[in-house]
Amino acid sequence: MSVILETRGLTKNFGGLVAVDDVSFALQKGELLALIGPNGAGKSTCFNMLMGQLPPTSGEVYLDGDRITGLGPRQIWRLGVGRTFQITATYASMTVVENVQMALLSHNGEIFRVLPFAHRMYRDQALALLDMVGMAAQADRHCAVLAYGDLKRMELAIALAHEPKLLLMDEPTAGMAPRERVALMELTARIVAEQGVSVLFTEHDMDVVFGHAHRIMVLNRGALIAEGNAAEIRANPLVQEVYLGGGTVFGGAETTDA
C-alpha cells in the first residue's frame, strides 16, 4: 500500500494558542480515515491547512510524495484533491446539474471561454456523477429548493467531478437526519471501494465513524492522542477520558487523579 497524503509535524499557532500541535500522520491509498475529537480539538484548523486555506506555522504536507505546504485551495484542487464543506457551499442560482458542470468546466480549463453555451457542456458527465450519488432525477431542479441532505450529496458529486485521488470531507453528515447520515456514509464507502479514492473525514457522529472508517485518529487539544481501528480506539483509555470526562480541563488538576 502506498501513502497518498502525509503530514509531518503540522503545527498552527494563533497568537499564543497552539491550535494544532505537531500532527504527523499518513493516509494510505484507498483508505477511509476518520479524524475525530471533541469540539475545539483542532480538526477544522487541521483540515484548513490540508486544503490550503490556512498556512501552517510549521510542518509539511505531502500529496503523493510531493510537498504541497503553502499552496492555495485552487492549486491543491488541481492536484487531485476534492473537498466537501461542513456547511454546504453551492451555487444557489443554478440547477443541480449546472453546479456539477461548473466543477467540470473548471477542471477542463474552460472557465474563461465566452462563446459556447455553458449549460450544454459536460452535461452527460455531470449527469453520470449525479447518478452515482443518486441525484440524477433531480438534475434539472433549482438547487436552492433542495433538502439539505440532497445538497450534501450534490456537493459530493461536485467533489468527485475531477476524479480526485483524495477526498477531504469536513463533517460530511453535519446537519443531516440520522437515516440520511448512514446513507451518505454508505455511499461514500461504496465510492471509495469502487473508485479507489482515499478519504479523510472529520465527524462528530460516532455511529458513522465506527461503522465506516477503516482507521481512526483522535485529536485533542491540537495533538494526536490515539490512532487505530475501531476496536482499538474504543478500548483506548485516553480516548475514553477525552470523550467521557476531563476533556475540557485536560491538563488541569483533575488529570492527575483521573
Binding site: 486544503m51 492555495g72 485551495p73 485552487r74 484542487w77 488541481r78 473537498r83 464543506f85 457551499a89 453551492t90 451555487y91 444557489a92 442560482s93 443554478m94 449546472e98 458542470q101 461548473m102 466543477a103 468546466l105 473548471s106 477542471h107 474552460e110 472557465i111 474563461f112 471561454r113 465566452v114 462563446l115 459556447p116 453555451f117 455553458a118 449549460h119 457542456m121 461536485i158 467531478a161 475531477h162
Partner: peptide, 23 residues
C-alpha cells in the same frame, strides 16, 4: 450563458466553493 458568465455567477453565489474547485 457562457462558461465565463457561469463562473462569474459561481464567484458571486459561493466564493468558497468556486475557489475550492479551481476557479
Amino acid at each position: 450563458h457562457s462558461p465565463f458568465g457561469y463562473a462569474l455567477r459561481a464567484a458571486r453565489d459561493s466564493k468558497r466553493q468556486a475557489e475550492a474547485t479551481g476557479i
